[in-house]
């Protein structure tokens, strides 16, 4: 049901944890529906220097979280904002149909963290 890439990211997730010196944190999903993704990142000079995730959820939720951290690390804020949930799923070689809605929120979590960064910066 899952692609090899999904299984690889589930088994060997990249960038797991909380970033101690994060300047943007975002969380999406809720425990009721079974998926929560939390992203913490550090932006320096408009570039995402470091990023980490923590996820409660199924295999797809973990894999998309891991994949999105790889996709946006080292990218500018604008580039990261352009990454969509769909693009993350495609980068993983696709997700089973029923997973596309409930467990495919990783890009949203990154966007939430970037919004948090922008707000903090604005203040």
């Amino acid at each position: 049901m899952y692609s090899e890439k999904v299984i690889d990211h589930f088994n060997n997730p990249r960038n797991v944890g909380d970033l101690a010196d994060a300047n943007g944190v975002g969380q999406v999903g809720n425990a009721k529906c079974g998926d929560i993704m939390k992203i913490s990142l550090r932006v320096e000079g408009d570039v995402i220097q470091d990023i980490k995730f923590k996820t409660f959820g199924c295999g797809a939720a973990v894999a998309t979280s891991s994949m999105v951290t790889e996709m946006v690390k080292g990218k500018t804020v604008q580039e990261a904002l352009a990454v969509t949930n769909k693009a993350v799923a495609e980068a993983l070689g696709g997700l089973p149909g029923e997973k596309l809605h409930c467990s495919n929120l990783a890009a949203d979590a990154v966007h939430a963290a970037l919004n948090d960064y922008a707000e903090k910066k604005g203040n």
């Binding site: 299984i7 998926d35 409660f56 199924c58 295999g59």
Partner: peptide, 10 residues
């Protein structure tokens, strides 16, 4: 607690 069943099964 704190983890999800499908991840566990995988």
């Amino acid at each position: 607690k704190f983890i999800e069943g499908e991840s566990l099964l995988l």
